[in-house]
Amino acid sequence: MRLEEVKALLYKELLLEWRQRYAFNGMLLYVSSTIIVCYMSFGVRSGMLTPPVWNTLFWIIMLFTAVNAVAKSFLQEAEGRQLYYYTLASPQGIILAKIVYNAMLMLLLTGVGLLFYSVVLGNPVQDPLLFIVAMVLAAISFSSTFTMISGIAQKAGNNSTLMAVLGFPVIVPTLLMVIKIAKSAMDGLERSLSLDELVTLLAINAIVITVSLMLFPFLWRS
């Protein structure tokens, strides 16, 4: 696995996404319509949306977006073409490029999602910088976990139920940490108080990415 290889594969992913914009536009529309649905169902004018609910709802929406966005990372390309890549590149390079690409995609989607969400449902965040840090870490964690899971689900016939069933229990620790950091950011708490969660989140990410790098070679061989 070389850095140039990862770069080249990443470039390929970006190019593919750019050429078939409908998938990306579809994801953007998915985020916006989910937010609209939540907005309508909560009936915000009656003031039901307290800050903790605002926070949790946002991350749940992002979780479902992540499942849908990352699930297609192995679906987009035909079987034959994947075989072709496997003859060209190392498996570690492929999975790393996919993780980086999905992290970028998730970051973009979370950003756009937050923008739209704030416009529609208000933005009670008091410490925007910490909230953005939480978003970046969430993007990386969602992408690293779900990329591997989508690789597994793809081998089982790309069943989207399977993707959720396999992915949700695994993502829970990350999601809890992210929600906690985001909650501290909303309340404008001292940043050092979130240090524990930040370190734990980074550690979970390190575990997940290392295990993915080790296991993916066994996955793609089949």
């Binding site: 229990p169 695994v170 734990t200 550690a203 979970i204 575990i207 997940v208 296991l215």
Partner: peptide, 8 residues
């Protein structure tokens, strides 16, 4: 993969 994610 799941075992590694379950430890934390």
């Amino acid at each position: 993969f799941a075992f590694a994610a379950m430890v934390p």
